[in-house]
Amino acid sequence: MSSKDALPKPVLIVLHQETSTPGRVGHLIAARGHPLDIRRPRYGDPLPDTLAHHAGAVIFGGPMSANDPDDFVKAETDWIGVPLAEGKPFLGLCLGAQMLARHLGARVYEHPEGRAEIGYYPLQPTQEGARDAARVGVDWPGHVYHWHREGFDCPTGAVTLATGDDFPVQAIRAGPAAYGFQFHPEVTYAMTCRWTVRAQHRLVLPGAQSRRAQLEGRLMHDPSVRIWIEAFLDHWLAGGMIEKSAAGGPAPGAAGRLSHAAAPSR
């Protein structure tokens, strides 16, 4: 088989509960021809020593904290050095983003007033985030879905792409293709319904939105999230190297690599 006919490489999917799924992100990656290599290190699945045989990796959210002392939490956090060292596409969502921040030496913390972000909240791109959106070809959504009560600082050597109110850092990039999002673009309507029922006790936390507000928020805001995440994943799977030229066509971008040896989450 020639390289032209080679099948797309799988994407490594890291989940944290037995019933968790990669949701919309998993569906969109699979729709682009990439098999999903789903692993749950919490239940004994190993992580690969290299991503040479993968197109990239996604670490999803979970009810645990990146600060927890569990062996699998430390192992996953340390493992992020593999995609960073190899310059492979990496995406951390909520807990996965916090693990990326921890790996790079940043703080993961609870809000000083005990506030949570559960529901749809505004997202404000930074100047660097606006440049990233130009590379992706689609603007950031104005509101995104959250389910967490911990946030993280932007690590040294990374850039903040988007900010929020209660938790200022909402999106970071480290190198050309390692991203961390505090929010949940993978969430489907069914996942929203499930989370707001099974974890409804968290809806009384300060700052959390009611179940009705979340479902109404999805009707208003999810269409723009869907458009953005489809374009973002194309950019991400290409290694974060796609630039939009003045003529509108794709051209290779110049970005230096960082040098570094489904249930609701926190």
Rank of each mutant, 00 (worst) to 15 (best):
A106C: 04
R107V: 13
V108D: 06
V108N: 05
H111C: 06
P112Y: 08
E113M: 13
E113D: 15
E113H: 13
G114M: 01
G114N: 00
G114H: 02
A116I: 01
E117C: 00
G119C: 05
Y120F: 15
Y121G: 03
Y121K: 02
L123A: 11
Q124T: 14
P125W: 01
P125C: 02
T126L: 09
T126K: 12
Q127V: 15
E128A: 14
G129P: 04
G129I: 02
A130C: 14
A130S: 15
A130F: 12
R131L: 04
A133K: 06
A134E: 15
V138G: 02
V138C: 09
W140A: 07
G142S: 14
H143G: 04
V144Y: 11
H146D: 05
W147M: 01
W147Y: 01
H148A: 01
E150R: 05
E150D: 13
F152M: 11
D153Q: 11
D153V: 10
C154S: 01
V159H: 00
L161V: 05
A162D: 11
T163D: 07
G164K: 01
D165N: 11
D166Y: 09
D166T: 13
P168Y: 11
I172P: 00
R173Y: 08
A174W: 02
G175E: 13
G175Y: 08
P176W: 07
P176C: 07
A177S: 14
A178Q: 01
A178P: 02
Y179D: 12
G180P: 06
F183Q: 03
H184N: 10
H184F: 06
V187Q: 01
V187M: 04
M191P: 10
M191T: 15
T192A: 14
T192R: 14
T192M: 15
C193F: 04
C193M: 11
R194I: 15
R194P: 15
W195Q: 03
V197S: 10
R198W: 12
R198E: 15
A199P: 03
Q200E: 11
Q200V: 07
H201E: 13
H201D: 15
R202P: 03
L203G: 11
V204T: 12
V204R: 09
L205T: 09
P206T: 06
Q209K: 12
R212C: 00
A213P: 08
A213Y: 05
Q214G: 09
L215I: 14
L215V: 13
G217C: 08
R218S: 08
L219W: 04
D222P: 00
S224W: 02
S224V: 09
S224I: 03
V225I: 11
R226Q: 12
I227S: 09
I229W: 06
E230A: 09
E230F: 00
F232R: 02
F232M: 05
